[in-house]
């Protein structure tokens, strides 16, 4: 397994776990102030991401230092494109939900969830494309 694939697995796991944490915090009180759920979530994402990437870099320092090669760049670009499409679609859904139930805090939570879903999809797509070659 290449370093980029390991990195994508780590980031997909981080986004998934932190997303579950966010949902667990936000779902019981969907209309509650957003800062109480967002600040711990952001801190969790930063800590887990940095820790995961540091462990990977320590295990494979040469691969971690190497820039993306041409195939990896294509994979990252293509996954990023589809991640953007998913994010846009999810944000539109969040907007529709706001029209149905106008609550600013809910809109914020839906937007954060859209971001999480798009990120998870992007990393999973990276893994698939790296395995399939393209």
């Amino acid at each position: 397994m290449s370093f980029r694939e390991k990195s994508a697995w780590v980031m997909a796991a981080v986004m998934l776990l932190s997303g579950l944490f966010y949902m667990k915090s936000a779902l019981p009180y969907p209309g509650s102030p957003v800062m109480e759920t967002v600040v711990p979530y952001v801190l969790l994402v930063i800590v887990l991401s940095v820790a995961g990437q540091v462990v990977l870099a320590i295990r494979s320092p040469d691969e971690a230092r190497a820039p993306l090669d041409e195939r990896e760049r294509l994979v990252v670009d293509r996954a990023g494109y589809w991640g953007g499409v998913i994010l846009a679609a999810a944000i539109v859904l969040a907007g529709i939900a706001y029209v149905v139930a106008p609550n600013g805090n809910m809109l914020f939570h839906h937007a954060v969830l859209a971001l999480i879903v798009a990120q998870v999809a992007q990393y999973i797509l990276q893994i698939i494309l790296l395995r399939r070659a393209l």
């Binding site: 290449s2 694939e5 090669d69 041409e70 195939r71 790296l130 070659a133």
Partner: peptide
């Protein structure tokens, strides 16, 4: 040639 082993395999 400046690519990864995985790219050569592919």
């Amino acid at each position: 040639v400046g690519v990864t082993r995985q790219t050569i395999i592919a």
